[in-house]
Write a protein that binds this DNA or RNA. Structure first.
Lengths: 341, 341
DNA sequence: TGGCTCCATGCAATCGATTGCAGGAATTGG
DNA sequence: CCAATTCCTGCAATCGATTGCATGGAGCCA
């Protein structure tokens, strides 16, 4: 079934040297003489040789690939992050494997299997919501050195991670709403138990306190990052007697669902209420009204994650290298927020 | 726990049999006796054995993985398709590699390399816009048997493919707009040269003809599937003297951009003009107004693509199996379309 | 019991690249 | 001119699982 691609042996025969020399000419060019190097590269060209990755991987005990784990492949939020990861991986000659934690879990595979069975050298996890049991199995050395969390992370700071400035971004968002005149500010949160939800919610509460604004428990509406939850949250908001004049949503999808539901109920944004999101996904700019949001640099986040993981994989003893990288966020002001009437 | 993963040898030693027997007990259970099978599986459990994929791949000459090629990783349209592909691949024990055609091209890699160097057994291409040179290099047997196009495809029907009912869907869309009373129908197309753009545009023209509706060249507005192109198309529409009362956009993103621009210019949808899209992406339902669209079953499309490719890879001579699968689309009627005033 | 098949198992080669070790040539120094 | 060093190359083992072939034993029938 496999097409007969030529092997090192073939190249060696053509070049009139041993396979060892060919191998060295390719992977350690400075170990062979100028003339053989040329002979070999000509022979490679003639025979159309491609290194067989399976053989190399077996011999070198490295897979030259990295697994990226998403909570849910269907979620568009992750696509730009993937792009960033892929960019840096392919630069270094690594391949990118993708799996969703849901599917892996359903199929009964264990995550460490990917590392143990030589399919991947390391993994980048974009899902902080892994069940405890899985986390526990990951912590056992030495595979833990080959794992990195991105976007999300887990409570105890066990694994290295790359994240956005969730707390600073949240506070900046609240401060912005305050600066344009809002004094009654609400928050729609992410899903219960999620680390991002917690970081943003607690930062929100702190900043409200720091600005000495009204604190109403019912102004903090539970959600789960989804469009649908945003709709529900809007209904909750509508039902309030004393409504906040601005709502900071923990994700753009929440904000869009919120606005969408308001519009169905004949409320106007930002005239009746200012709404802002978090993430600045592509669509935020085109939404009606265009969505004010806190931009996460997802591409950079992905690139950083890949770079950090590779550094750890390739450094002799996983030593050095920072434990956590934080990616700046930036406030993008658009039409969904305005001074209160 | 154990720093070294155990090998077949270890298991063999524990079970008191040869490595050959262990291997057979695992991959061809019916070739060994009941009792050894039990002994082996106990030994596997005790030693925590995981098959080494690199070794297996080398010996069996198969990578047990499939490469999925996207035009652009950042495009959320593909995420559900990926989910479908991944689902079927992992069921059969395959891994999913992801790369973007842009990145592959930029890095100077050749696509066939993935097949030639034993990184992937086959590939699913979601980008019909590959440059001719690349296509040509792919056609050379025998790698061509391991390639499948999904969503998009290439002009000459060289490779097997999985697609949605683009033509039927388009005609149904036009017929629907006609049925609710529209007689002046426009179309915003995809990018020039794209096979989907061509399929939808030609079907659109045919159906307009079949329904004996007005044909105005300027009612067919060139676009490129993106939000931004939708905005531009709306400007074009506004500038028309004789405007169509309904516009069928070749993608949801186009439709959303179109509506968004209209809204900025104080036109109302569907009061002033009905707009519909194609794809039914997640957001379509929450858009304001909710978007009428032609739903593509992206999950099924992905699953089908994976199933077809694996069938071809695993069948002895790539024989049999249909050459092209077509996935049904369905009309989803929402608030962005209504009878003309 | 003899001769036969059939099943389960082990031996050893194999996949293709990498690399420790050793040896030969070339170079340098004394 | 000999010894010491450096540089380049080849030999052969190795990574770990799979599988064709051979073998020994059990089971069957006459």
């Amino acid at each position: 079934m496999m097409s007969k691609t030529s092997t090192l042996q073939d190249v060696a025969r053509v070049a009139g040297v041993s396979t060892a020399t060919v191998s060295r000419a390719l992977s350690h060019p400075n170990m062979v003489s100028e003339s053989t190097r040329r002979r070999v590269s000509k022979a490679v060209e003639v025979s159309g040789y491609r290194v067989n990755r399976a053989a190399r991987n077996l011999r070198t005990q490295r897979a030259h690939s990295v697994l990226v784990l998403l909570p849910d492949l269907g979620n568009p939020f992750f696509s730009a992050i993937l792009e960033g990861i892929s960019l840096n991986l392919s630069r270094k000659g690594y391949s990118m494997l993708i799996a969703s934690t849901k599917q892996v879990h359903d199929s009964g595979e264990r995550l460490v299997d990917y590392l143990d069975d030589a399919r991947a050298d390391g993994m980048i996890i974009l899902d902080g919501g892994l069940v405890a049991e899985v986390i526990a199995s990951l912590k056992s050395a030495p595979q833990s050195k080959r794992i990195l969390f991105a976007c999300e992370w887990i409570e105890e700071d066990e694994f290295p991670s790359v994240r956005s400035e969730n707390r600073r971004g949240t506070k900046a968002a609240v401060r912005y709403l305050h600066d344009i005149g809002h004094r009654k500010i609400g928050h729609v949160t992410g899903p219960e138990g999620n680390v991002l939800m917690h970081a943003r919610k607690s930062a929100f509460i702190e900043e409200i306190g720091a600005l000495q604004l009204e604190q109403h428990p019912e102004w903090i509406i539970p959600g789960d990052f989804s469009l649908a939850a945003g709709c529900l949250a809007a209904q909750t908001w509508i039902a309030l007697e004393n409504r906040p004049t601005a709502v900071f949503c923990a994700s753009d999808q929440l904000a869009m669902g919120f606005i969408s539901e308001l519009s169905r109920r004949n409320f106007k944004v930002p005239d009746d209420v200012s709404i802002m999101g978090f993430d600045d996904i592509d669509l935020a700019e085109q939404f009606i009204p265009p969505l004010t949001s806190m931009r996460q640099d997802r591409l950079l986040l992905g690139e950083t994650a890949a770079a950090m993981l590779l550094e750890r994989l390739e450094s002799p003893e996983g030593a050095g290298s920072e434990h956590a990288a934080v990616i700046p966020v930036s406030l993008i002001i658009r039409g969904s927020t305005a001074a209160p009437r």
